[in-house]
Design a protein around this nucleic acid. Structure first.
Length: 590
RNA sequence: GCCCCUAUAGCUUAAUGGACAAAGCCGCGGCCUUCUAAGCCGUUAAUCCAGGUUCGAGUCCUGGUAGGGGCACCA
């Protein structure tokens, strides 16, 4: 945003240092800690340290840094857009002209609208695979994090300038599916899903596990059914196809509600055969060892890499009976993705942290086999959502909060709240607000957290609409809208203001927060961290709330009013864009 | 045994190696005849321990302590 200014200043610094034989270290610019003015700052500690180490002046580093800063301050006269320059504690602080800076930030945000903060197209494609639900099972809160995190990540990467392919990889075959089919045929034959499809699918699955626990001898029937599947018995295949579809429809309903979209579906059932072929290839090339029939087909990664410590360990790529494992299918999936999109620069897997070793092994195995694309694969690991007391949600243990119930509850609670807060809302508006607020409150805590940290789910905080939460940002957005509506300028066409008055500190902080948004988008994309956006969106809302309290807009005198209207528009746009990157709606009223 | 992750205020969480560690919740005290009080303002309180690297460490390295996770035919 201040690149031009930065270059001019850097030129001056370099020229001076060259002329005086000072070994200037790389310049890095940072914001000045808030002082009621905007500016940028750089320090000379590194330069001073280098100089002293090289046998220059014998004095403490901070003192020498301050000397350099002082000298440079004298060189900075007359730069357009710079109001003053300070040398303090070894830092050179360059302050911007207030009015000019405010004008630029506000008009930027307003002119760019929904594209404010969008990065220039990078011309690079990448894939984000996320969600990976199992068919024939319930969808619970534990599954929500991958869906929410992956969706937000995809939105952020897209906004940052990448071409993003959103991929899903449902687990549609495996022992759990066979168990489900067995229970369905035996105890639920002919039944159809109820309204909450995934809940019902989960119910049949728990029935299966319960019956098998009570009567372990029934496992023989399950194995027999698995054999029929392996033979592709038409009746079994037909039932699988039909019931699998139920799950997929159920997932679609959930994704619809959550506003999550996919471009591409991969299914593990489709990777089974190609996976086996890859394993055969690995055996032929001496990377995998076939111990069948006594043992499985394995890849001894540490041996192949010559590691002393067990780090990569052994990857089992095929069962001793020749059937496929997830590893078998994951090997194939890597290649499948790059066949579909050969130009991808990165293939990202948003999967929980417990599978870190698994993905390390899969990618490393392919790398050893010479598949260069494997190096472009990255596992973005996230921690689990647990229940209070560090209880892991498990369908089998019955320790789950079913997603459909949670969503219903959140929206219901939001509706109650909205009715209380704003009795003037019509029925249609009320429902829309309830959905936006309820879902936002649900998503935000999953995003406003370091990926690698556990989220403890409890109803109380999930349904708490106060404080650092999505509704706070949404509310700030609504207040912006309200001001603009009353001022009659929803159109975003307002006379450009000069910002030629003494800005309130809250205005300065708000402009500062708005101006940082584009850089935060890039950082979030680089680090794969929606948290960055969640925090910054909140920061914008917080500074706006303070501004709202201190600075009357509509009643201000004309010049100030025009400026503040621009600020409100810019703030509204920034919050709307931030929320959108989190997959959260920005309502116009609440 | 080996590998990975985590440790900041009473609680939940922030902080590109840079200036005084920042919020929310809870508690206490203020603020609605003024653009929606789902709000604002004030207030107490923290970097697990010991070394090291660095001009400078919550951040990087080593070793501990505590918690969690993963390690051959589960996903």
């Amino acid at each position: 945003m201040n690149e031009q200014l930065q270059q001019i200043i850097e030129q001056k610094i370099k020229a001076y240092c060259e002329a005086n034989a000072i070994p200037l270290a790389a310049l890095k610019w940072m914001p000045i800690p808030f002082s009621g003015e905007w500016g940028m700052s750089t320090s000379f500690f590194q330069t001073a340290a280098d100089e002293i180490r090289a046998g220059g002046a014998k004095k403490p580093v901070p003192a020498r840094a301050q000397e350099i800063a002082d000298a440079l301050k004298g060189q900075m006269g007359g730069v357009e857009g710079v109001s003053r320059v300070d040398a303090v504690k070894g830092y050179l602080n360059v302050y911007f002209e207030t009015a000019a800076y405010a004008r630029r930030v506000a008009s930027d945000a307003i002119a760019s609208r929904a594209d404010f903060g969008r990065g220039a197209p990078k011309g690079q494609r990448l894939m984000v695979e996320f969600s990976q639900p199992n068919t024939h099972k319930a969808f619970h809160v534990g599954h929500l994090r991958s869906a929410i995190l992956g969706d937000s990540l995809a939105r952020i990467l897209d906004f940052a300038g990448y071409d993003v392919v959103r991929a899903n990889y449902p687990g549609d075959m495996g022992l759990h599916v066979i168990r489900w089919l067995w229970a369905y045929m035996k105890y639920h034959n002919g039944e159809e899903p109820e309204a909450d499809i995934t809940n019902w699918m989960g119910m049949v699955y728990s029935d299966a596990t319960k019956r098998l626990e009570e009567n372990p001898e029934l496992e023989a029937e399950v194995r027999a059914l698995y054999a029929r599947w392996d033979r592709r018995d038409p009746d079994v295949v037909a039932l699988w196809e039909k019931t699998r579809q139920w799950s997929l429809v159920g997932f679609d309903q959930m994704y619809d509600l959550l506003d999550i979209k996919f471009h591409k579906y991969y299914f593990n059932s489709e990777e089974e055969q190609p996976g086996k072929e890859i394993v055969a290839e690995l055996v032929k090339r001496g990377i995998a060892i076939d111990e069948r029939p006594e043992g499985p087909v394995i890849v001894k990664l540490d041996d192949l890499l010559g590691n002393k410590n067990e780090k990569f360990r052994v990857l089992v790529v095929l069962r001793s009976d020749g059937t496929a494992l997830y590893a078998t299918e994951d090997l194939s999936l890597v290649l499948h993705k790059f066949r579909d999109y050969p130009d991808m620069v990165k293939s990202i897997y948003v999967v929980d942290v417990r599978q870190s070793l698994h993905f390390t092994q899969v990618f490393k195995t392919l790398e050893l086999a010479g598949y260069e694309d494997a190096k472009k694969c990255a596992h973005v690991a996230y921690e689990l959502v647990t229940l209070p007391g560090n209880v892991v949600m498990s369908s089998r243990e019955g320790t789950v909060v079913l997603l459909e119930n949670l969503i219903r509850e959140a929206i219901e609670r939001a509706k109650e709240e909205a009715k209380k807060k704003n009795p003037n809302l019509g029925e249609e508006q009320l429902n829309a607000v309830a959905k936006a607020v309820g879902l936002g409150a649900l998503k935000y805590p999953l995003l406003a957290r370091e990926n690698a940290k556990i989220v403890t789910f409890d109803w109380q905080s999930a349904l708490d609409f106060n404080g650092q939460a999505a509704p706070y940002i949404q509310y700030a957005h609504v207040r912006c809208n309200s001001i603009l509506r009353k001022a009659g300028v929803e159109t975003l066409n307002v006379k450009r203001s000069t910002f030629d008055y003494a800005l309130d500190p809250s205005e300065i902080e708000l402009i500062e927060a708005i101006s940082r948004f584009p850089a935060e988008v890039q950082r979030a994309a680089e680090e794969y961290k929606p948290l960055v956006i969640a925090s910054h969106g909140y920061e914008v809302a917080r500074t706006f709330a303070s501004f709202y309290d201190k600075c009357p807009v509509i009643q201000a005198e004309e010049n100030v009013r025009a400026a503040r209207l621009e600020l409100v528009m810019a703030a509204k746009q920034t919050m709307a864009n931030a929320l959108s990157l989190l997959g959260i709606q920005a309502p116009e009223v609440m």
